[in-house]
Design a protein around this nucleic acid. Sequence first.
RNA 1: GCGCUCGUAGCUCAACGGAUAGAGCAUCUGAUUACGGAUCAGAAGGUUGGGGGUUCGAUUCCCUCCGAGCGCACCA
Length: 556
Amino acid sequence: MISDQIAASIKSALAAADLPLPDRGIEVIAAKNRDHGDWQTNVAMALAKAVGARPSEIAQRIINALELSPPPHVERVEIAGPGFLNFFLSPTWLHDVLVEVVAAGENFGHGEMYAGTRINLEFVSANPTGPLHAGGGRWVAVGDAIANLLAAQGAEVHREYYLNDAGTQLQVFAASLYCRYSGEELPTDGYQGEYLIEMASRMRAELGNDVSIEQALDWGYADVVRQLRDDLARIGVHFDTWFSERLLHERGDVAEVLAKLTKDGHTFDKDGALWLGSEALGDQRDRVLVRNDGATTYLANDLAYHRDKLRRGFDHLIDIWGADHHGQVKSLQVGMGALGYGSPTEPEPEILLGQLVKLQRGGELVRLSKRAGDVITLSDILDEVDPDVARLTFLLQGIDSAQTFDLDVVTAQSIENPVYYVQYAHARVASIGRKAAAAGINRKELARVDLSLLTHERELDLLRSLAEYPEILSRAAELRAPHRVSTWVRDFASRLHGFYRDCRVIGEDEALTHARLWLTEACRIGLADALGLLGVSAPDRMERTDEMREPDGGDL
RNA sequence: GCGCUCGUAGCUCAACGGAUAGAGCAUCUGAUUACGGAUCAGAAGGUUGGGGGUUCGAUUCCCUCCGAGCGCACCA
């Protein structure tokens, strides 16, 4: 990348000018404002204090030294503002970007940050007591996108779903299902959801009129898991492992963990229960591991579960949890630390907390509760909107802010939907390709195309976006923030529409036509890759519905 | 009370400690004899919740206050 080359030049310039390296290294970033050139660095300001000189003076010394080993493509360097060094490059650097994109193809922008790392990513993991609710769709979309981002940085990513099938919730669920089946009154803490009525009638159809509560549990559990898989398949997410909590108990893993913690002096007995001395390890308080009735707690089971993941050979564990579970983060990490995994600065597992989704319909918030019964499921949403729409909508914003999912807006399939805006950009590029082919124009070998003809500001804007793409991806992976890709792709699509408007690709000038055909190909690569990482399709054509053509049902 | 996450344009949201805080929607004004108008251009819209601090420089880091959501079980 050109920014690396500039940084390298600055580094040798600093040495030549007898200046130290800034503590934070040399930061070369893309200028936001065209007046500030193409790339800028703050090294002169960063060094001001250590060197004891004014930023402008240091900047001048760097410029002088740079002349010994100037970075490629640089036309001039200016000192501006409080001491920035602004690099103005010839457009040729952007033509090189085009070549890089085409050469890398579908790997363009991908990196090696996590090469050789095996990462286990656990997400969704809702209790198997009912269908996935709509809000859970956020974790489906976010988890899958993060997995893609990590994989694009070279990681071997394993998607995992934890089935909490040994706890009391499943008992309550089975009892609720049984009551729906037998007509008895639901337990007060039972699941009120109407989906159980439907399930009960199917259970009767399949198993007859003489079902025991144990059978209800087995059948209901299997049925729910099947529903979960189906819903996830509808939105295109595949898990590598569905892990059963029962296995941890049957195999004695939980007992092993408890024995180890006790042997190492991390536990104590109180009130007939076994406690983890977690407060001493940095938790808010101590936590119960074994209740006084002998049952192990969620924490004990979860410790065994995460230990198992690491024993399966993963280098790193990531869990995505809803923010309503944030109280458990510290105890799990501290407990894993006591078992000898992770470190205080890099605990295992790494836990990503996502704020919850509020559903809105008709301008009012819809309350979601699996138990209370007023459930809008992910499946309901997918009945109304395309999976692409659902996915991108969930990926539009960062996970640490609460999301309001407006069902009216999303299901309207309206023109304002960013999904169509971005996909349309891709369809347009494909359309140009079809048009060119129909006219008998095929792209010449890239090496024989004169890219220096690409000088229009619209063209350069597209290439600048592509130049930033690798950095966008690595930051998004590092921060586990797929919404950065969403933001990029919307902006990129916008630039592509602007280009389309102002620059005709297939025209009289044959050389320019070929240059622009390659430019659109590079754009297609970038768009398709970004959408792919987000789990959104990149269609070659799009159907326009009648509803869209006549939004008011008006006369055309 | 304690803890976690937030508070940015009318609305929904962006912004590696960097220069004039950006998009979309909504509002207003324009653009098409050509590659798909699900498009483009422009205008208007802000004390980044309030107040301190750190520094060359703060939406970003620290403190405090206000407000919101969520936690604080021998439930998961």
